[in-house]
Computed example of a mutant assay.
Amino acid sequence: MKNKFTLLLKSSSLIALFILAISFQTANAQEEDKFSFDVSLNSDQFFGFYPFFQGNYKLSDNTAFTFYGILWSGGTGGAWGNWTEFGVGLNFDVADGVSVNPQIGILGGNLLSSGTFGSGRFGDGVVPNLTIGLDKAKTEGQIYAGFYAPLRNEAPPSGTTLSYLHYWANFGYKASDFFSFGGHFEHLINTGGSNVSASTDVYQWLGPYVQFTKPGGGPYARFSFGTDLVEGNDSFFKLTTGFSF
Protein backbone atom coordinates (compact mmCIF):
# COMPACT_ATOMS: atom_id res chain seq x y z
CA MET A 1 0.00 0.00 0.00
CA LYS A 2 2.83 2.33 0.92
CA ASN A 3 4.61 1.61 -2.36
CA LYS A 4 1.41 2.35 -4.32
CA PHE A 5 0.98 5.64 -2.45
CA THR A 6 4.62 6.59 -3.12
CA LEU A 7 4.22 5.75 -6.82
CA LEU A 8 1.00 7.78 -7.00
CA LEU A 9 2.71 10.74 -5.30
CA LYS A 10 5.64 10.62 -7.72
CA SER A 11 3.28 10.38 -10.71
CA SER A 12 1.23 13.31 -9.45
CA SER A 13 4.40 15.36 -8.94
CA LEU A 14 5.59 14.60 -12.47
CA ILE A 15 2.21 15.54 -13.91
CA ALA A 16 2.21 18.80 -11.92
CA LEU A 17 5.73 19.64 -13.13
CA PHE A 18 4.70 18.85 -16.70
CA ILE A 19 1.65 21.12 -16.43
CA LEU A 20 3.78 23.91 -14.94
CA ALA A 21 6.33 23.56 -17.74
CA ILE A 22 3.62 23.73 -20.41
CA SER A 23 2.03 26.73 -18.70
CA PHE A 24 5.39 28.51 -18.52
CA GLN A 25 6.12 27.85 -22.18
CA THR A 26 2.66 29.08 -23.18
CA ALA A 27 3.01 32.25 -21.08
CA ASN A 28 6.50 32.84 -22.50
CA ALA A 29 5.23 32.39 -26.07
CA GLN A 30 2.38 34.83 -25.43
CA GLU A 31 4.87 37.36 -24.02
CA GLU A 32 7.10 36.98 -27.07
CA ASP A 33 4.10 37.52 -29.36
CA LYS A 34 3.65 40.97 -27.81
CA PHE A 35 7.05 42.15 -29.07
CA SER A 36 8.14 42.92 -32.64
CA PHE A 37 11.28 44.52 -34.01
CA ASP A 38 12.36 45.89 -37.40
CA VAL A 39 15.86 46.80 -38.57
CA SER A 40 16.65 48.49 -41.88
CA LEU A 41 19.66 49.86 -43.74
CA ASN A 42 18.95 52.99 -45.78
CA SER A 43 20.82 55.10 -48.28
CA ASP A 44 19.94 58.28 -50.18
CA GLN A 45 21.98 61.09 -51.69
CA PHE A 46 21.21 63.63 -48.94
CA PHE A 47 21.59 61.72 -45.65
CA GLY A 48 23.97 59.09 -47.01
CA PHE A 49 23.95 55.72 -45.26
CA TYR A 50 21.88 55.40 -42.07
CA PRO A 51 20.66 52.31 -40.16
CA PHE A 52 17.22 52.48 -38.56
CA PHE A 53 15.44 50.31 -35.99
CA GLN A 54 11.98 50.31 -34.43
CA GLY A 55 10.35 48.20 -31.73
CA ASN A 56 6.77 47.55 -30.68
CA TYR A 57 5.46 46.03 -27.43
CA LYS A 58 1.72 45.40 -27.22
CA LEU A 59 -0.04 46.83 -24.16
CA SER A 60 -3.50 45.73 -25.33
CA ASP A 61 -5.20 44.50 -28.50
CA ASN A 62 -5.15 48.00 -30.02
CA THR A 63 -2.32 49.82 -28.21
CA ALA A 64 1.44 49.36 -28.11
CA PHE A 65 4.50 51.05 -26.66
CA THR A 66 6.97 51.95 -29.42
CA PHE A 67 10.60 53.01 -29.63
CA TYR A 68 12.94 53.79 -32.52
CA GLY A 69 16.44 54.93 -33.37
CA ILE A 70 18.24 56.39 -36.40
CA LEU A 71 22.03 56.27 -36.69
CA TRP A 72 22.37 59.28 -38.98
CA SER A 73 26.13 59.30 -38.38
CA GLY A 74 26.65 56.49 -40.89
CA GLY A 75 26.60 59.04 -43.72
CA THR A 76 26.71 62.84 -43.87
CA GLY A 77 25.65 62.90 -40.22
CA GLY A 78 29.14 61.80 -39.18
CA ALA A 79 30.20 65.40 -39.80
CA TRP A 80 27.33 66.62 -37.63
CA GLY A 81 28.84 65.43 -34.37
CA ASN A 82 27.86 61.74 -34.71
CA TRP A 83 24.23 62.73 -35.26
CA THR A 84 21.87 60.21 -33.63
CA GLU A 85 18.11 60.10 -32.98
CA PHE A 86 16.21 58.04 -30.40
CA GLY A 87 12.54 58.25 -29.46
CA VAL A 88 9.53 56.61 -27.83
CA GLY A 89 5.77 56.77 -28.29
CA LEU A 90 2.46 54.91 -28.47
CA ASN A 91 0.87 53.13 -31.42
CA PHE A 92 -2.91 52.93 -31.82
CA ASP A 93 -4.71 50.56 -34.21
CA VAL A 94 -7.61 52.82 -35.17
CA ALA A 95 -9.13 50.63 -37.91
CA ASP A 96 -8.47 47.41 -39.78
CA GLY A 97 -4.97 47.80 -41.22
CA VAL A 98 -4.62 51.45 -40.12
CA SER A 99 -2.35 52.61 -37.26
CA VAL A 100 -1.43 55.99 -35.77
CA ASN A 101 1.89 56.34 -33.95
CA PRO A 102 2.79 59.67 -32.24
CA GLN A 103 6.37 59.71 -30.90
CA ILE A 104 8.95 62.13 -29.58
CA GLY A 105 12.66 61.80 -30.19
CA ILE A 106 15.81 63.42 -28.86
CA LEU A 107 18.97 64.08 -30.85
CA GLY A 108 22.67 63.80 -30.17
CA GLY A 109 25.08 65.76 -32.37
CA ASN A 110 25.37 69.40 -33.36
CA LEU A 111 23.42 69.98 -36.59
CA LEU A 112 20.52 71.86 -35.00
CA SER A 113 22.16 73.54 -32.02
CA SER A 114 25.09 75.04 -33.92
CA GLY A 115 24.58 74.39 -37.63
CA THR A 116 28.31 73.68 -37.94
CA PHE A 117 30.66 70.72 -37.92
CA GLY A 118 32.39 69.81 -34.67
CA SER A 119 32.06 67.72 -31.55
CA GLY A 120 28.64 66.23 -30.80
CA ARG A 121 26.52 66.82 -27.73
CA PHE A 122 23.50 65.13 -26.21
CA GLY A 123 20.37 67.26 -26.47
CA ASP A 124 21.13 68.77 -29.88
CA GLY A 125 17.41 68.91 -30.56
CA VAL A 126 13.98 67.38 -30.10
CA VAL A 127 11.79 65.67 -32.72
CA PRO A 128 8.02 65.41 -32.21
CA ASN A 129 6.77 63.15 -34.99
CA LEU A 130 3.74 61.26 -36.22
CA THR A 131 3.48 58.15 -38.41
CA ILE A 132 0.27 56.84 -39.97
CA GLY A 133 0.54 53.35 -41.41
CA LEU A 134 -1.61 51.39 -43.87
CA ASP A 135 -1.24 47.63 -44.24
CA LYS A 136 -4.16 45.83 -45.89
CA ALA A 137 -4.50 42.71 -48.01
CA LYS A 138 -3.84 44.55 -51.29
CA THR A 139 -2.66 48.04 -50.33
CA GLU A 140 0.15 49.55 -48.25
CA GLY A 141 1.22 53.05 -47.36
CA GLN A 142 2.68 55.46 -44.84
CA ILE A 143 2.46 59.14 -43.93
CA TYR A 144 5.21 60.61 -41.74
CA ALA A 145 5.86 64.12 -40.41
CA GLY A 146 8.58 65.19 -37.98
CA PHE A 147 9.75 68.62 -36.82
CA TYR A 148 13.45 68.93 -35.89
CA ALA A 149 13.84 71.77 -33.39
CA PRO A 150 17.06 72.83 -31.60
CA LEU A 151 17.02 72.52 -27.81
CA ARG A 152 19.77 75.08 -27.26
CA ASN A 153 21.92 77.61 -29.08
CA GLU A 154 25.56 76.60 -29.40
CA ALA A 155 26.19 78.52 -32.62
CA PRO A 156 29.20 80.88 -32.83
CA PRO A 157 28.49 84.64 -33.15
CA SER A 158 28.58 84.43 -36.94
CA GLY A 159 26.67 81.11 -37.06
CA THR A 160 23.11 79.97 -36.63
CA THR A 161 20.95 77.23 -35.21
CA LEU A 162 18.81 75.25 -37.66
CA SER A 163 15.37 73.63 -37.68
CA TYR A 164 13.76 71.32 -40.21
CA LEU A 165 10.39 69.94 -41.21
CA HIS A 166 10.64 66.48 -42.75
CA TYR A 167 7.63 64.65 -44.13
CA TRP A 168 6.73 62.01 -46.70
CA ALA A 169 3.82 60.00 -48.03
CA ASN A 170 3.75 56.80 -50.04
CA PHE A 171 1.05 54.47 -51.25
CA GLY A 172 1.31 51.16 -53.04
CA TYR A 173 -0.41 48.08 -54.40
CA LYS A 174 0.49 44.52 -53.36
CA ALA A 175 0.60 42.63 -56.62
CA SER A 176 1.50 39.46 -54.70
CA ASP A 177 2.91 38.36 -51.32
CA PHE A 178 6.35 38.89 -52.87
CA PHE A 179 6.05 42.08 -54.96
CA SER A 180 4.48 45.50 -54.44
CA PHE A 181 4.84 48.88 -56.14
CA GLY A 182 3.63 52.43 -55.68
CA GLY A 183 4.53 56.12 -55.45
CA HIS A 184 6.67 58.10 -53.00
CA PHE A 185 6.74 61.82 -52.17
CA GLU A 186 9.22 63.28 -49.64
CA HIS A 187 9.97 66.87 -48.63
CA LEU A 188 12.70 68.37 -46.40
CA ILE A 189 12.42 72.06 -45.47
CA ASN A 190 14.94 74.19 -43.61
CA THR A 191 12.35 76.14 -41.59
CA GLY A 192 14.78 78.65 -40.07
CA GLY A 193 17.19 79.28 -37.22
CA SER A 194 18.63 81.96 -34.97
CA ASN A 195 20.11 83.75 -38.00
CA VAL A 196 17.86 82.34 -40.73
CA SER A 197 14.99 84.63 -41.64
CA ALA A 198 13.19 82.55 -44.28
CA SER A 199 12.53 78.86 -44.87
CA THR A 200 14.02 77.07 -47.88
CA ASP A 201 13.38 73.77 -49.63
CA VAL A 202 16.29 71.35 -49.27
CA TYR A 203 14.75 68.70 -51.51
CA GLN A 204 11.34 67.63 -52.77
CA TRP A 205 11.35 64.10 -54.15
CA LEU A 206 8.65 62.48 -56.27
CA GLY A 207 8.71 59.10 -57.98
CA PRO A 208 7.80 55.41 -57.98
CA TYR A 209 9.02 52.57 -55.77
CA VAL A 210 9.25 48.81 -56.04
CA GLN A 211 9.43 46.43 -53.07
CA PHE A 212 10.28 42.75 -52.70
CA THR A 213 9.25 40.96 -49.50
CA LYS A 214 9.61 37.40 -48.28
CA PRO A 215 6.07 35.92 -48.17
CA GLY A 216 5.01 35.55 -44.55
CA GLY A 217 7.36 38.29 -43.31
CA GLY A 218 11.07 38.65 -42.70
CA PRO A 219 13.53 40.26 -45.15
CA TYR A 220 12.47 42.93 -47.64
CA ALA A 221 14.03 45.43 -50.06
CA ARG A 222 12.63 48.68 -51.47
CA PHE A 223 14.00 50.99 -54.16
CA SER A 224 12.54 54.48 -54.69
CA PHE A 225 13.66 56.87 -57.42
CA GLY A 226 12.49 59.83 -59.47
CA THR A 227 12.79 63.58 -59.81
CA ASP A 228 13.69 66.37 -57.37
CA LEU A 229 11.20 69.24 -57.77
CA VAL A 230 13.48 71.83 -56.13
CA GLU A 231 14.98 74.18 -58.74
CA GLY A 232 18.64 73.41 -59.34
CA ASN A 233 18.34 69.83 -58.11
CA ASP A 234 18.12 66.89 -60.47
CA SER A 235 16.90 63.47 -59.28
CA PHE A 236 16.66 61.27 -56.22
CA PHE A 237 17.20 57.65 -55.25
CA LYS A 238 16.59 55.84 -51.97
CA LEU A 239 17.49 52.21 -51.24
CA THR A 240 16.23 50.33 -48.17
CA THR A 241 16.74 46.76 -47.11
CA GLY A 242 15.66 45.32 -43.78
CA PHE A 243 14.28 42.50 -41.68
CA SER A 244 11.14 42.22 -39.56
CA PHE A 245 11.36 40.02 -36.46
Rank of each mutant, 00 (worst) to 15 (best):
M1L: 12
N3V: 04
K4E: 14
F5G: 00
K10F: 12
S11W: 02
L14H: 07
A16M: 04
A16Q: 08
F18Y: 08
I22L: 14
I22H: 09
S23R: 12
S23E: 11
A27N: 12
N28L: 14
Q30M: 09
F37S: 03
V39G: 14
S43Q: 12
Q45C: 02
Q45H: 09
F47G: 08
F47L: 14
Y57D: 00
S60F: 01
A64F: 06
F65S: 02
L71T: 05
G78N: 11
G78M: 07
W83F: 15
V94K: 00
A95W: 10
V98T: 12
V100A: 08
N101D: 13
Q103S: 13
L107E: 14
G109S: 07
L111W: 03
L111Q: 11
S114M: 05
T116N: 14
S119F: 07
F122H: 01
G125Q: 01
V126K: 04
L130C: 02
T131S: 13
L134R: 01
K138D: 11
E140G: 01
I143K: 00
G146E: 08
G146P: 05
F147E: 07
Y148M: 06
A149S: 12
P150R: 04
R152K: 13
E154P: 02
S158W: 03
L162W: 03
S163P: 02
F171D: 03
S176K: 02
G183W: 10
G183I: 15
F185G: 05
E186C: 03
I189D: 06
N190M: 06
A198M: 08
T200G: 12
T200W: 00
W205G: 06
L206H: 00
L206V: 09
Y209E: 00
Q211C: 01
Q211W: 01
T213S: 15
G217K: 12
G217P: 10
G218A: 01
P219F: 13
R222H: 04
F223K: 08
D228F: 09
D228G: 10
E231T: 15
N233L: 04
D234V: 02
F237G: 12
K238M: 12
K238Y: 15
T240L: 10
S244C: 04
F245W: 11
